[in-house]
Amino acid sequence: MEKMNDKLQKTAKELLENKEVNLIIGFTKGSNPLRMRSVFITDPDDVSKLSFNAHCVQDLAVFLKKPEVKKFGKVGLIVKGCDEKAVNTLIQEYQLSRDNIKIIGVECRGVVKQNLADKGEDSVKQSTVYDKCLVCEVHTPLLYDYLVESDEPAFEINGDIKPYAKIEELDAMSVEDRNMFWQKEFEKCIKCYACRQACPLCYCTRCIVEKNTPQWIETNIEETGNAQWNMIRAYHLSGRCIGCGECERACPVNIPLMLVNEKMARDVFEKFGYKSGVDINAKPVFGTFDANDFNEFIK
C-alpha cells in the first residue's frame, strides 16, 4: 500500500504544483482506521493526507456534480474502476468536460463491506467484499490520465458465486410475491432522498420529486408515494447506473436498492447490448434507438 500511496501523493503534488488542476479529490484515513473518508486538497503540501486501501468505499465522482467543486474548474479525481464509469457517464451526458478532469485511476482489488469493516474486518476476500467486486470487470479503470497500480494480489474466487443472488430469486417468484417483497421494503422508505444525494448520476438541480406542477410523485410518506419514488429513481437510472452501490449504502433504512439497479442494468444489456459508463463517446441507450429493437411485447 505504501508504494501506491507514494505514487498517489506524487501524482497529486505534481498536478497541483503545475497548476494542471486546482483541486484534488481523494481518500484519507478517517478517525476509525478501517474507515476512509473523502478529502479535498488544494495545497500541494497537503498531499501526504492522500491514501488508498480496501476501505475506500465511497464513489468520489459524486462530488463532481457539486457547485462547490465545479467552481474549481480543473479537478483531479482519485477513483476506482467501478466509480470511474460514473465519470464517463457524466462526460457522455455533458455534465463534465473531459478537459476539466484529470483522472487518477487506482487499480482496485475490491473493497471491504463497511458493516464488516466496522466490526474489525480488514482482509479482502470473497466473503468480505461487496457483490460488485465479485463481478468486477474494471479492476483497472477504463479511462485514466494516471494509473496507480495495486501492489496487492487479487483475492481468490472459489466455487459458484452468485452476486445479487436475490435477483434470480425475485425473478422466479410470482408477481404477487414480488409485490409483497417490495411493498415491505418500500414501506420503510422515509423519503430522505439520501439515495439520490449519494448517487453520482443524480445531478438534476431540480429533481422530478420536487416538481409539483404536476406532482409526479406523492411526497407524503405513504406507500404509493414511496413506491413511486423508488420506482422512478430506478427508471431514471436505467441504462445509466454504473453500479457503484452508493445509494444502497446511503439508505438509512437498508432498502436493497442495488437489487433494482443491477436488475435494470442486466435487463438493458440483455435487450440492447448496452453497458453504461464504458465509452465516453457512446450514445446513451435511451438517447438513441434501433429500428430492430426488441418488439415482442407489442401487439
Binding site: E93, Y94, Q95, Y203, C204, T205, R206, K211, K283, P284, F286, G287, T288
Partner: peptide, 13 residues
C-alpha cells in the same frame, strides 16, 4: 431554463 441541467437527452431524441 432555470431547472434545465443540460444533459441534452432531449437533443438526442
Amino acid at each position: 431554463k432555470t431547472t434545465c441541467v443540460g444533459c441534452f437527452y432531449c437533443r438526442r431524441v
